[in-house]
């Protein structure tokens, strides 16, 4: 299936949960240094459960589409559940094959979320290599 599937284009053209939370529990920004894409995630967390997630940013259809798709999954998840999301989970959500050169575009949302949650838990942020791990080294 094509990378630019209807689902992704739909989310790119009409992004969900793009906006701001008045008093977010946590806010975190990440960049994809290779292309300048930028995403900020805001989370409202109550009793270790994500009550609301909003985001803003600019980027390509893949990074924005993926962020929009992921944002629909966050509400109601516990911090623990959200922290456990993996790149395979995001790939499943996107439902299209992600080539090596677009992996960082697709995972910018996950990387931002992971570090937002680290920040919430007062932990050190993680690097891109930690987010996409060995996957980066794999051939297409």
């Amino acid at each position: 299936m094509d990378l630019y599937a209807e689902n992704i284009l739909d989310h790119f053209k009409s992004p969900r949960n793009r906006g701001e939370i008045k008093d977010p529990t946590v806010e975190h920004e990440e960049l994809n240094l290779s292309c300048g894409d930028k995403i900020t995630i805001q989370l409202a967390i109550e009793n270790d459960v994500i009550k609301e997630s909003q985001w803003k940013g600019s980027g390509c259809a893949i990074s924005i589409g993926a962020m929009s798709i992921l944002s629909e999954e966050l509400e109601g998840k516990s911090v623990e559940e959200a922290s456990a999301l993996s790149i395979d989970d995001v790939k499943k959500l996107l439902g299209v094959p992600i080539s090596q050169r677009r992996l960082k575009c697709a995972m910018l949302c996950l990387h931002t979320l992971k570090n937002a949650l680290h920040s919430f838990k007062h932990e050190d942020t993680q690097s891109w290599t930690e987010t996409i791990g060995q996957e980066e080294m794999k051939n297409e």
Partner: peptide, 9 residues
């Protein structure tokens, strides 16, 4: 169209 999407396509 973001340049990355354009250039990829």
């Amino acid at each position: 169209i973001h340049p990355h999407d354009l250039t990829d396509i």
